[in-house]
Design a protein around this nucleic acid. Structure first.
Lengths: 211, 211
DNA sequence: CACGGATCTGAACGGCGTCAAGATCAATCT
DNA sequence: AGATTGATCTTGACGCCGTTCAGATCCGTG
């Protein structure tokens, strides 16, 4: 384990600086948030000079892409776990949605980087829509829940609708304006499930508990 | 009209610099995007020194707040117009949703600033959830469409669900990955309506055209 | 007309992303 | 072995950024 060193006992050449930089960036994200994530800070955290990252990434954006990639992998794992834990095919959708939003809540800074990195790109980021990724996981779940009679276009549209709804809820649930309501419905997770139940594509046994 | 001047024929004191700065910021947003929106660039565009804005705003964030405020007002107007144009109370929801997403598409940079400015705040931004604002407009529309029997909490949850869905779709529709699908359903607006129709709280006469 | 307060400028500070030139080291060739 | 090459890292610099502070300018009031 030589990632975080003190910059004195390490040789001139780092050995695995690329990975170390990505991990340093994640460390900064977790501890200080996205606004503190400068290229110089990452280099500092990794114990190298400000120019060193340029031998592994074209610019700051490429480093953020690498960080985002890790995030998409983590998110995919969370969603897969939630899907596999669900008993019902239809309820799997809801569990996946809850896992998605909870990931965003648990790693807000990383989640932000994941979307910021992909915003000004022509294609969606690698980890998001490439095969065997988070997006396809949702699409497969919808295909399975819909059955063979539903046309593929509706599956795709439903997937997009669910993804948009999940992303919107993920961003919105960070706002503190809803704190009172969260408490009223009995905590964060209940709030998520209640909102998702109003979204049409996330079936739940008892919508609100009040109806 | 003395907002954009050439910095030579203007007197030492600007007269209405606060408003001029906000307008300069909006001009930069429209023409060069959010990444070009530095405080110095805004001051340059307004024809004043880099330190001048500090006599009208505490820091850059406060200037962005003012810009965002204008955005929320504009968005509210768009949504109000869409609501008033709808014939049916239930379809009003859909028209409001379409107007919301279309606003985000027409003013992507401003829309980004509106949410960036409100992200790290305890309360939601002034223009968003204060009474007689965009959020309350949606809530009123839901209350009206739901009728008097639906409990207030469900109205609130449905409002949140719709807002999240609209925001998610607004951000997502900027990604170019869905371009093929947009073409397949017959254009941008049809795509929006198709996705919204899958979201449960936006009723439409013919969901996809295929079903 | 004096003057106090609001407004704006000019110069400066540290931090940022980025680049070019040089130092260092591992691997390869002779 | 010794020389060389190419990858990696450092140093130092550039221009831009947000922000601050002392001083210049001007408006309104006494």
């Amino acid at each position: 384990m030589r990632d975080a060193a003190t910059a004195e006992n390490r040789p001139y050449h780092h050995g695995d600086l690329r990975r170390a930089l990505v991990e340093a960036a994640r460390r900064i994200l977790e501890s200080e948030g996205p606004s503190a994530l400068s290229l110089r800070a990452v280099a500092r955290e990794a114990g190298v000079s400000p120019a060193a990252p340029y031998h592994h990434f074209k610019d700051k954006g490429e480093l953020l892409d690498a960080v985002a990639h890790v995030g998409w992998d983590m998110l995919g794992d969370s969603m897969r776990a939630a899907r596999d834990q669900a008993t019902d095919v239809r309820h799997a959708m809801t569990e996946i949605g809850v896992a998605y939003v909870q990931f965003a809540q648990q790693h807000p800074a990383l989640y932000r980087v994941m979307y910021d990195a992909s915003r000004d790109k022509v294609a969606l980021p690698e980890g998001m829509k490439s095969e065997d990724s988070a997006y396809c996981l949702v699409q497969d779940a919808f295909r399975l829940a819909a059955g063979p009679d539903v046309p593929e276009m509706d599956v795709e549209l439903a997937t997009i609708a669910a993804w948009c709804a999940g992303h919107g809820l993920a961003e919105m649930s960070a706002f503190h304006q809803f704190d009172a309501l969260k408490q009223a419905v009995g905590g964060e997770e209940n709030f998520l499930r209640a909102v998702l139940s109003h979204m049409g594509m996330f079936p739940t046994p008892h919508p609100t508990g009040a109806g």
